[in-house]
Design a binder for these strands. Sequence first.
DNA 1: ACTCTGCTGAGAGGA
Length: 865
Amino acid sequence: MMIINSIFSEFLKYSVTPLRYKQNLAEQTVMEEVSQYIPSLMAWLSKHTCVSDSSGRSPAAEKKFGLKGKIDLTVKAQLRKTKASREEVKVLPLELKTGKASFSSEHKGQVTLYSMMCSDRRPDPQEGILLYLKHGEMETVTVKPESKSGLVQLRNRLARDLSRQVTTETDENGRKTYFLGSLPPPINNERACSKCSHLQTCSIYQRSVEKPELPPNHAMSKLVPEAMGHLDGEDLAYFLHWILCLDVEGKESGRRQLSSIWCTSGQQREKEGDCLSNMVITASELGIPESQSFNDGKGCSLTFSRHPSYAGAALNTVGLTTGDMVVLSSEDGHLIALATGFVRNISATLVEIVVDRDYLHKTSEYKDVKFRLDRNDSFSTAGYLYTSLSKLMDPTPQGSWLRNLIIKRQAPEFELKVSKSCLYKVKSIFKPLNKPQRTAILKVLMAKDYVLIKGFPGTGKTSTIVALVKILQLLGLSVLLTSYTHSAVDNILLKLKKEGVHFLRLGRQGRIHPSILPHCAEILTSSPSINSVQALRKFYDSYSIVATSCLGVSNHPVFQQRSFDVCVVDEASQVLQPACLGPLFHCRKFVLVGDPKQLPPVVQSKEARSLGMDESLFVKLDNRGATYDLNLQYRMNRVIMELSNRLVYEGQLLCGDPSVAEQCLQIDTSLLSDQPKWQKAALSPKIQNSVVFIDTQKIAATEIQDGKGLKNKMEADIVLILLKQLMKAKVGGETVGVISPYRSQVQLLQQMVHACLPLAGVEVNTVDQYQGRDKSVIIVSFVRTETDNVGELLKDLRRLNVALTRARCKLILIGNTVALKVYDNLAPLLSWLQETQNVSFYVFVSLLGKFDQCKNSGGKLRLSD
DNA sequence: ACTCTGCTGAGAGGA
């Protein structure tokens, strides 16, 4: 059965309903196409096989030659070379082809590679079988040593060329300039190249980077100008700029490769937090729903524990967490990349992963095998980003519309007014909105191209999007709702759900909020009533609102078939420009929502940042007459708001409501007896004391390098004293947040809070994680005390802005003013706080001389006045 | 000089 199943799964690639939908195939065509292969297949089976269930296991990757691929089928074959020679039995790779028998060198080469892969786990078969199912032709491909070395050499050459994509030149001042590297000269084959899907990109690259010297009459001399005739110099410059950014980021951030699995031991990789070593399988289970997005089978999960002989760290402290992608291999290096999957559950002693291969369910074969689970980061979104850039260059109306708006920065157009009947329809949704929110929505209705909605902190971005989506739906317009993160998408959807709006959510189930799962496409389409292309199309078309992540747009079949009236991108100022393009290919106008004064897209390498890679599409399109500010905020009281108005918003931020402006910390100070003065000041409920800075410059609160991170124990102690006081004075723990720019400090604080105030509900997190959220009370621990070796992190005004705009009533800042003055952004803030301390809200608390007292009390911190 | 979310992929064929 295994053999037959494997063979039929080959056909399944064509018969899976979503795929047919994606390729817009009629049901019958597919069935006819599939059924024509069945007779020759059955004939072949009866002639050559006695059906027995061999394991059917085929390697996914190979160690000796560094190959990776999936073999259709391995068969145990009895071979009789000549009449004289004895029968030989060996396991061979079998490659199925549904087309006409060509026995082309490509096909033979593929079998050669598979045979090489087999040789890593079994005796080298040195041959393989090609089976063409159209007429049932079969041929044994004999693998010659020279074709092996030929293929490996070819691969190595290509790998070398691709690894030199970026070249650098360093000038006398040590400044680096990056250049795109060139590839080997193009082949001269008009027939192949004219139909190649990469012709356009290849042409741009040849024209702008490689500039090969071609002989006269070379196919490319004609094809290149044809392929890029619709592009001008500006288009090319944009394209090349972003390709360079992506290349530099890839090079400098040092992407981890799969090869590290066979170059580094499991225990070594575990130290780096990227691997669980010495694992054994303890259980397996079939029928795992989460596997659906990548598995045609029933979905298999495997549970591992440590091998009894190995006393490693608790599994959930190593660094792998739920949802991480992993590769499964054996410790001895015999089974490389046996399967890939993701972590479903992880505890101190057990880890459960969902794998892409159902046959691993039969775990008896592996009972003596020690496994390792490596984080699978080798895959990156880069491929998708390159594709989006190339799509932007396409000679399509959509491509040229987007190029005009984005690259040429053509002014977006608007209708002059919104019709009366339209206004009447949306009246009730408009009612609870404030003026800037209404203006922004009206502009979206009038826009022909795009609108940017700049949502300052606490100004009701989500409510505005919710209202906008409802209005668009009411007007009969379809909406593609996206954001960079799944959590931001679900944030909006949770509100829409509450209002009874009908929508469809696409994306991996593991990433989707539990209460949104019932709206998830995979779950809804699994209903037995959706069993044909028509039913599936009807299902997808019945939703006017479709929501997913920006990158989730890339591969879903819906987007090959559908276009939307309006696309909304939330968090748009945090989305990499090429990633933001994805959803825009599928809409007639778009709305970007964000705030460029808050955090920019994550770019790992400083080099790529210096090229401008962190410029979001939001920033690129800002100031083109289509930006509308939401400036009425409902979060911070006037004192806290004033701080970020000084720092970044230049007075534009206004309180949306007088009660917001005057809100103060609700604290029962009568419960706090003989408090030192600095604590009294820090926790004062008076509005003029809403922002407090606790300066640690006079006490020994020094930053500590902790592996890759930074932490500051003394600052953490001060945070904890304040938290305890707050809890004592009946301030709800869930209304209090602690923020630090540094992960290590966050971890330290989390441990301490967990130990001392386990049930209080105080949330400790990084600045980055707190974006988009707020708490009544926020305590910020700045950590840094050194004045040299200043870090990148605090240099970013946007990160500081986020830290300062999370608090509603009380913002307590803890840091060393001498060290923090080194930062250009912080210096004016600090001096302003110091200057105005008498007139407004800066409370300067000196802890001079208190450190000795701490030491005397046996290491226990006891800060008194 | 430390901040972090995305994405399964490999191969299906047609001259």
